[in-house]
Design a protein around this nucleic acid. Structure first.
Length: 578
RNA sequence: GCGCUCGUAGCUCAACGGAUAGAGCAUUUGACUACGGAUCAAAAGGUUGCAGGUUCGAAUCCUGCCGAGCGCACCA
């Protein structure tokens, strides 16, 4: 019995098609869909398609399938309806038995994949010496949620944080450190205001020719491995790393210092990448630069689109780094798949890089490389979000503000101070992350405190609150129901809720397959809504009989576990009380 | 100019080629000494940007327009 109800039904229907029509079809071909018809749980849409190839009446084909369907242990006798739909209704007995068996299943019915892969995923990617800003929020939040989902599905996930720690800005920064005398070993704290330090250096770089020249020479020293320069560079990187860790801790992002593979890491491989591409005759010199011209891309003049792998002056750009990165993860680390959680504007860049990788043979048909693009966070004015002064919004400021907003909500609770602080954090951070995850990632969205902290509708707070109500009831009940407690479906809302709970595996699978956390969000919201309806009309502790009370405690327990597990897969906390 | 993404209720968003396109907010109307009302139930709200096409069936796939955003050689 497959944990995903739709998959199990698909197998049964596929077997029926085989038996009735002697046609080989897969469980996917069975086209099992949750039905919107009243009183129908699932439907199979397979008969209409088969009827065409068979030259038969779709209703007859459907009737044939139904006649051969071996699923009486799961569903009521199926009905053919409309133009050839097969309507499936799960039996109450089967539903109740499933509920009982989920009680001691940590995964709530979601089976691990039967084809686990090693997946290298690139997300977050902040820049050294620059404070993290809202521009890094979506990549961090989405990448983290997708990583958690993939790991839960049973894949080996290797995150790598591709930080910007190399290149021309570092000559400028290091030279500024020297000018300011911030070279002593006890000066680390003095670079804590990273943004300010960067801006000072930038200003000086633009204004003073002499400084600019020194900065350029310093880049050469850095890339040439000059010891003192490298030592200063490392101090910058370390100061930044501390800052990243603070933000990740506050935001609940799982990236650690061990996951950092910055641009500098790939530096030793760049020359060889160009050499190999050259040996494969995939590059030529154009305008003084060494370029690849992958098939099928044209630039604005209608000429082949260049991917510059070595710049005119001999330096390397980000395309080369990305090529080296991909090659490293595939060849050195044995990755099957490469995922990049990077904003949609980079779509063409990745298409070009993937094309070059395939032409070079580094990426083969066995590998799956995908750019997981996402839309921009907009301000109330519908433009890219900025501070009133026009600068980029610091991520820490944004998160602190989120926690402050949430603290105002938590103020009227009677919780002890320490717990209230933790709740404010869970609610505030959860609101920000959920706002980022609950819509299709491709869409831009407008950042709006009121909407993301709303206590009704599809928000993290609503889910967290629903869970707290359940936890409160369970706490009052004294003990959680034991595995094997019989479930009785005495009210339609109990059945609705249970059916929803049993669809959790399908929601997880869809969210994972499409790298679409919002599909899980939608499901959690529907689960919480179904619980609220159940809760409003089905007394749990005050149920008419001990049997019904215990049965409802099972439903409440399972609901709480769906919400808690689901939120955790999104990287969001579910407090006991709030 | 070429390419990519998007256009769904007043607003914010769902909908794996399937039946009568669904939620929330806002609006209107009901329900309660309430296991946490931060709730539930119901009404109203749509020519899915426009026009063709493919299909038994299209918001979804194809083509052309209209509109929005982004990208298209040495910043990453």
């Amino acid at each position: 019995m497959h944990g995903n109800v739709g998959v199990e039904l698909g197998r049964r229907v596929a077997a029926a098609v085989q038996a009735a029509l002697d046609l080989p079809v897969s469980e996917q071909d069975a086209l099992i869909r949750p039905s919107k018809r009243d009183g129908v749980d699932y439907q199979s849409n397979i008969a209409m398609g088969l009827a065409r190839t068979l030259g038969r009446d779709p209703r007859d084909v459907a009737a044939d399938i139904v006649a051969h369907l071996d699923a009486a242990d799961i569903v009521e006798p199926p009905q053919v309806s409309g133009t050839g739909f097969v309507n499936l209704v799960l039996t109450d007995d089967w539903l109740a038995a499933r509920a009982g068996s989920l009680l001691d299943d940590e995964r709530l019915g979601a089976p691990p994949t039967d084809s686990p892969r090693r997946i290298a995923i690139d997300y977050s990617s902040p820049n050294v010496a620059k404070e993290m800003h809202v521009g890094h929020l979506r990549s961090s939040v989405l990448g983290d949620a997708i990583s958690r989902l993939l790991r839960f599905a049973g894949h080996e996930v290797v995150p790598h944080n591709h930080i910007g720690d190399w290149g021309t800005p570092f000559g400028m920064l290091i030279e500024h450190m020297v000018d300011e005398g911030r070279t002593g070993s006890d000066d680390d704290a003095s670079i804590s205001d990273l943004n300010g330090f960067y801006q000072e250096a930038r200003k000086k770089f633009d204004a003073e020719l002499e400084f600019a020249n020194r900065a350029r020479r310093r880049v050469v020293l850095l890339q040439g491995g000059h010891q003192e320069t490298l030592a200063l560079w490392r101090r910058l990187v370390e100061a930044s790393a501390r800052h990243f860790e603070e933000v990740y801790a506050l935001l609940g992002i799982q990236l650690t210092p061990a996951d950092v593979y910055g641009e500098s890491f790939y530096n030793p491989f760049l020359a060889d990448v160009v050499k190999q591409l050259s040996a494969k005759r995939l590059v030529k010199v154009s305008g003084g630069a060494i370029c690849a011209f992958p098939e099928g891309f044209t630039n604005r003049d209608g000429d082949p689109q260049a991917v510059i792998v070595r710049k005119r002056g001999g330096g390397y750009g980000y395309a080369t780094t990305d090529l080296a990165t991909a090659r490293y993860w595939i060849e050195e680390r044995g990755a099957d798949d490469l995922l990049y959680v990077v904003g949609s504007p980079q779509a063409q860049h990745f298409a070009l890089v993937f094309a070059v990788l395939r032409e070079a043979g580094w990426l083969t048909g066995d590998h799956h490389a995908q750019h997981i693009g996402f839309g921009t966070i907009l301000g109330q004015d519908g433009r890219t979000i900025r501070t009133r002064a026009g600068g980029s919004v610091k991520l820490v400021d944004l998160l602190v503000e989120a926690v402050d907003h949430a603290a105002r909500i938590a103020e009227r609770t009677a919780l002890p101070e320490a717990e209230r602080t933790a709740v404010a954090r869970a609610v505030g951070i959860g609101a920000v992350k959920y706002a980022d995850l609950s819509g299709d990632r491709r869409n831009d969205y407008v950042f709006d405190w009121n909407r993301m902290l709303a206590m009704t509708g599809n928000t993290a707070v609503y889910l967290q609150y629903a869970n707290c109500r359940i936890r409160s009831v369970l706490h009052r009940a004294g003990a959680e129901p034991a595995a094997g407690t019989p479930v009785l479906l005495t009210d339609p809302r109990e059945r609705d809720l249970l059916l929803r709970i049993l669809r959790f595996p399908a929601a997880c699978a869809a969210a994972t397959r499409d790298y679409a956390p919002h599909k899980l969000c939608t499901h959690l919201y529907e689960t919480a809504s179904a619980f609220s309806a159940f809760y409003a009309s089905c007394p749990i502790l005050g149920a008419d009989s001990p049997q019904v009370r215990d049965s409802r405690l099972v439903l409440a327990t399972l609901t709480s576990r769906v919400l808690t597990l689901g939120l955790s897969l999104l990287g969001i906390e579910a407090p006991e009380r709030m």
